[in-house]
Design a protein around this nucleic acid. Sequence first.
DNA 1: TATTGTTATACTCTATAACTATA
DNA 2: TATAGTTATAGAGTATAACAATA
Lengths: 158, 158
Amino acid sequence: MNRDLVGAEVTAALGLLVRRETRERIYAELTRDVADGVTELTYPVISGLERRGPCNAAELAAVVGLDRSVVSRRASVLEGAGLLTRTSDPRDSRWTLLSLTEKGREVVAMMRGRLRDILSDWLDQWPENEVNAFVRILSDFTVSGPFAHNNAEALPAI
Amino acid sequence: MNRDLVGAEVTAALGLLVRRETRERIYAELTRDVADGVTELTYPVISGLERRGPCNAAELAAVVGLDRSVVSRRASVLEGAGLLTRTSDPRDSRWTLLSLTEKGREVVAMMRGRLRDILSDWLDQWPENEVNAFVRILSDFTVSGPFAHNNAEALPAI
DNA sequence: TATTGTTATACTCTATAACTATA
DNA sequence: TATAGTTATAGAGTATAACAATA
């Protein structure tokens, strides 16, 4: 495959990936019937909190790419659904520490496992060495490719 | 690499790809100083029109995933910038045919070429056989993978 | 009557601003 | 005084609704 064709193919693939419906379809599939309060909007917050561990709203906002006001509002939804708790942050009692409940952790594990299984199953149709190459290049592209996030702390939205 | 690890890696990569900033960064890079009227918002319209060929707003809307009212408004922006023209559609004089001007076609070629070059250059660091596997699997994922668009006519947003 | 194009309106999501509380 | 949390407000983007035009 020549250079230009490769570039054009990846261009088209990227163009389909970044469409709004693609994102929506992924979130719809993963959050379906999982728990009250978990939607396309709250998913990045609950998932980010699981990846980052207990932290305050400003810290979480920085790694999920949202304003702290948005994180605060979505955290309230998750709190109301029993997936997240607010406690005083021992580092500074002005702050509020966000932590997942046991149920919150279960929900994240279920959703992320669901996606992992969907992807693993689909990838099974390809030869192992090709899958390894795919994963290696795709991971590197998102982490340090030409359009990687400047913020090295940026977390996946899933 | 075992199944679960592969799934988890692709999950994380996908989670970074679908972040809003990723999309914004790509569009910002491609539209920088290209032409008046071309922004993150008008890009899918001008690009879709190039891929689809002259058509009316309703037809274009169906393949770019927007409402015809949005397409109509963005088309007006592109028309004002001299990138697109409106003529009566010979198929039905109630309709309006959208067509790119010569300048409009040049702009699309420049932007898409810019992305193709960025991707080709970056991919040069990998062995050719691994790149081929990457492109093959990625393309198939976007076209017929578990989260592919139901509408087979759906066009890349780039 | 039915459908497109266009414009006006409403809705959704996000950021900014403003306010409270506390070190 | 300075900073986090929260809530109110404004802005950006999209879809829906409404209307004119024409087969």
